[in-house]
C-alpha cells in the first residue's frame, strides 16, 4: 500500500500541472523511492490515484529505464558504454567489474546488493570512463578505483 505521506505528496505534485496526469512521472519516482520498484499491485493503486487504467501506468513504467516494475538490487551500478566512453576503455572497465562482482552485466549479485548494467550515454563524455552508482556520478575511472567504490557500498 502506498503510504499516506506519499499519497499526500502525490496530491501536492498534481497541483503543479495543468492536468493531474502530469504528475505521473514524479509520482512514480516518489513511489519507487518508497518501495524500490513499482509492483503491479502498486501500479493499480497509482492508476486509481490518477484515474487511469493500470495498463496505462504499466506502459509508462516500461517505457522508461529508471523506473522499474520488478524488484531491484540495493544499488544500481551503470557503466556508460556509449561511444565516447568506449573509446576510453569503458568496455574493459565493465568487464573488470563483472569479474570483480562475479556477475554478467545486466544481472545482480546473488545477495541482491548490486545490479550491474551497461548504460547509454550519461552526459559525462569528457570524463570517461565513468559510472553512475545510484544517483552519483564517478568520473575518470580506472578499474581499481571503480572496484573500491563498489566495495565501499553497503
Amino acid at each position: 500500500m502506498i503510504s499516506d505521506a506519499t499519497r499526500s505528496a502525490v496530491s501536492e505534485l498534481m497541483t503543479r500541472f495543468p492536468e493531474k496526469r502530469g504528475a505521473l512521472l514524479p509520482a512514480l519516482h516518489l513511489i519507487q523511492s518508497e518501495f524500490g520498484h513499482v509492483a503491479p499491485e502498486t501500479a493499480v493503486e497509482v492508476a486509481d490515484l490518477f484515474d487511469l487504467q493500470p495498463v496505462q501506468v504499466l506502459e509508462v513504467l516500461r517505457f522508461y529505464n529508471l523506473i522499474h516494475d520488478t524488484p531491484q538490487a540495493q544499488h544500481h551500478v551503470a557503466v556508460c558504454t556509449n561511444l565516447s566512453c568506449s573509446l576510453r576503455g569503458a568496455r574493459d572497465l565493465l568487464r573488470q567489474l563483472e569479474a570483480h562482482l562475479g556477475i554478467a552485466a545486466g544481472t545482480a549479485t546473488a545477495d541482491g546488493r548490486i545490479q550491474l548494467d551497461h548504460e547509454e550515454c550519461l552526459g559525462a563524455c569528457a570524463y570517461a570512463p565513468m559510472m553512475r552508482v545510484d544517483e552519483h556520478y564517478h568520473e575518470d575511472l580506472d578499474a581499481e578505483t571503480a572496484k573500491g567504490i563498489l566495495d565501499a557500498l553497503e
Binding site: 503491479p40 501500479a43 487504467q53 493500470p54 495498463v55 496505462q56 504499466l58 506502459e59 516500461r62 517505457f63
Partner: peptide, 22 residues
Amino acid sequence: GTSELGIFGRGDASVVDTFPGR
C-alpha cells in the same frame, strides 16, 4: 473505453500486452 491493451517497451522490443491479471 476499457483500455485493457497497451504497448510495453520501446523500439523493436515493443509488444502489445495486457496488464497482469486483467
